[in-house]
């Protein structure tokens, strides 16, 4: 199948890209790596009037340090994220989750920012960004604004990026020292989307869990923080029993969907199991 015809713009700077989006008419799609957008256009689920291809906007690529944060350009490919020493050192949770995204061909094209803006509930990176308290830098005609992860994911396939705007970069606080991290993903076959997955970051102190952050993938239309688990873990002993007791709260307040892969109650069960595994591993047990 072939996409419906569209006008094509290929800017080389963010400013040019914003102009192209503004001039693109009613229905404009921004093309990052295209690994979600092109399939959707082939199926004619999207038939935009204009496609603005960010492939030549060099300033959107790469990972750099800025004080106590990592700054990841929106157009950095999954492969480049995996190969980046700063990510491995300061945000291994991102590397672990990125490794599970699709397959190597898709990871060569697909981008960090594209996956986050697409905001598929089964996508792996949104829950990771949420667990790491990432911040999203969005450019628009009025300038740039920064949106925290908890406000970025608005609904199914919907983010805080408005019409006429684009995601420029994502700032991820470095979690060094006593932090351990683990991404636990459950799916049935290689390269498939997550049925459920859990992103955990845990800070240990004197045999206790001082702080825990738990993000849930595919447990609702947006990624979620497992607040009840985090509260139960705060100050708890770092033991398998305490972690299992806390993980039992993982599905509280979630409304996952039922589909071909799993019923909602099975997803809720998976959330507790995967949370226990992810937190246990992140706590170094």
């Amino acid at each position: 199948m072939i996409p419906a015809p569209f006008e094509y713009a290929r800017p080389t700077t963010v400013d040019e890209a914003l102009q192209a989006i503004a001039a693109g008419g009613e229905d404009v799609k921004v093309l990052a790596g295209g690994q979600s957008l092109i399939p959707v256009m082939r199926l004619r689920l999207a038939a935009p009037e204009t496609v603005v291809d960010l492939g030549r906007v060099a300033e959107l690529r790469g990972v750099r340090e800025d004080g106590d944060a990592l700054v990841i350009g929106a157009m950095t490919t999954h492969s480049d994220v995996l190969a980046d020493p700063l990510i491995q050192q300061h945000a291994p949770l991102i590397a672990q989750a990125t490794e599970t995204v699709a397959d190597r061909q898709v990871r060569h094209r697909g981008t960090f920012g594209g996956a986050l803006v697409h905001a598929d509930p089964a996508g792996d990176l949104p829950a990771v960004a949420l667990a790491l308290d990432a911040e999203f830098v969005i450019a628009g005609p009025e300038g740039r604004r920064t949106v925290p992860a908890r406000d970025f994911f608005v609904d199914y396939l919907t983010t805080a990026v408005g019409e006429g705007e684009l995601l420029v970069e994502v700032r991820v606080p470095k979690l060094d020292g006593q932090w351990g991290m683990r991404y636990e993903k459950f799916n049935r076959v290689a390269q498939a989307w997550s049925i459920v997955a859990v992103a955990a970051a845990v800070r240990r102190e004197n045999g206790h869990i001082a702080e825990a952050r738990v993000g849930l993938t595919n447990m609702g239309p947006t990624p979620l923080r497992a607040g009840a688990v985090e509260a139960a873990l705060s100050g708890a002993e770092a033991t398998p029993e305490a972690i299992a007791a806390a993980a039992a709260h993982a599905a509280e307040g979630t409304e996952p969907s039922s589909d071909l892969n799993a019923q909602a109650d099975y997803r809720q069960h998976l959330a507790t199991v995967l949370t226990r595994r992810a937190v246990t591993a992140a706590a170094g047990l």
Binding site: G34, Q35, D53, V106, H108, R109
Partner: peptide, 12 residues
Amino acid sequence: EAVKSCTVLAVQ
């Protein structure tokens, strides 16, 4: 780099 050529536009 290996890519799936059904998911890349020729213009890319």
